[in-house]
Structure formats: structure tokens, C-alpha cells
Amino acid sequence: MMKFGVVVFPGSNCDYDTFHVLQNVMGQETVFLWHKDHDLQGVDCVVLPGGFSYGDYLRSGAIARFSPIMREIKKFADSGGLILGICNGFQILLEAGLLPGAMLRNKNLKFLCQQVNIRIENNRTAFSGAGKKGQVLRIPIAHFDGNYYAPPELLSELEKNNQIVFRYCDRKGQLTEEANVNGSVNSIAGLINRQGNVLGMMPHPERASENILGSEDGKVIFRSLIDYLEKKKGTGKKKTVRAVRPAVSPLPPLIGTF
């Protein structure tokens, strides 16, 4: 079993959701990491969840990057630790300089909450290894600032280095203007750093990890991470024993246990 840490910033609101999926659906040990903490509790992977950290009043993710926990996360990243940023988490990674580029307001200037299709562009990463190249995943988005921007030189570098992991596409995997709902440059929905250990994505895989909610495609991302970590830890042998699913409480545990 791997240990995941879900960071809680003031204003994070997908922290419980991500926690729920990692622990109850994927069966992994999961802990919350409080933004004022200086300790990552020995996790194998850090997840920055969605939400509106600090109300996103300055710019999305702009203030969260100054949190104490972010210093630890930077060190963790430098030492090769796995970091997944979802939605607001992606925005924070951009603001913190752990990923290149920036976010602009969606092209239609509205908040967008809907199902989108994304295509796996690169499956040779720790975050996408359980998928196939070209595979289309149906995962929802929910954001106001998801219009990814990179200046031309950076963009060509990202393309050249195969750093674009997910792109918005239509049902059949075609890249169209219509499918690129927020207007991201080159339809970018998710990208990885040069070293391959930090990934940010706007779609919410934790919202597409249970059949009862309409899609399980998001599990590809979590599965990839678990496989990668198991392989790394277990001297190349994949564990066959799955963790027992813990009992789920219909009410999320009240914060107060940090």
C-alpha cells in the first residue's frame, strides 16, 4: 500500500473528495497535510486538490504558493517525489514555478462545470502509465481559470520534450476548437515537468472514479501512480495483494484531526 498526502489550504474544497477516492476507492493509505505544517509525513505522493485556495482573490493559486507546506513540497519535488496538482492544485504548481506557464480566464469568461474528453498524449509517465497513448478519458472539469497559456518558445519546448500529457479532444479523440472548451493553447489539459515527477491537470479525476457517478476513467491516473510506486518500491515486482477497502463513512471526518 502506498501513502498519499492531500494538502489542505484554506479554501481547498476537493480535499475530501480526493481523500475519499484515494482511501476508499483506491484502497491506499491517505493523510491530510495542513498548509501550515512543515512535514510531509513520509508520503509517497503529494496531491494538491481543487478548490479556491485563499478565495483565489488575487489570482488562482497565487497565495497558496507561499504556504509553509509549499517549501516542503518544493524540496520533495527536487528530490524526485511525485506531485499531482488537480485544478486549483495545477494553478498553484504554475504559480509556484513547479510547472511552466500560466492560466488565463476561460475563453467564454464563464465558470465551466461539465464533462470533457481528454486524450492521453504521453503514457510513459508515472501519472499515465496505466493508460494507452491516444486513449480518450471522460473526466469532468470545473474551473474559471483553466485557459492554459505558454509563450511560443516555451510551448515548442513543451511539445518537443513530450511534456504535454493530456489534451482536450472530442469523443473520438479529435482535437477541435469546440472540444477545447476553455481555450487552452494547443488544447493542453495536463502537463508534466521536465523531470517527470510533477503533473498538473485541470480535469478532476477524483470526480470520475466511481461508476455510480458516471465514469471510472479518472482511476487511470491514480492507478498509474500506484503501479509506478509499487514497481519502484517492490523491486520491480508488482504486488498482487490489494488493500482491503476500508469502511466508508457517509460523512467526511470533520477536520480537526491534524
Binding site: 474544497n13 476537493c14 475530501y16 473528495d17 475519499h20 477516492v21 481543487g50 464563464k110 465558470f111 465551466l112 462545470c113 461539465q114 469532468p140 470545473a142 478532476h204 477524483e206 470526480r207 466511481e210 455510480i212 457517478l213 458516471g214
Partner: peptide, 14 residues
């Protein structure tokens, strides 16, 4: 109207 609302957060909306 409703795609401007986050209708899925908390992962309970069926």
C-alpha cells in the same frame, strides 16, 4: 445556467 455551477464537488451527485 447550470454549467456555471459546480454541480459535482463533494462527489455525491448522481
Amino acid at each position: 445556467v447550470f454549467r456555471q455551477y459546480d454541480h459535482m464537488v463533494q462527489v455525491n451527485t448522481m
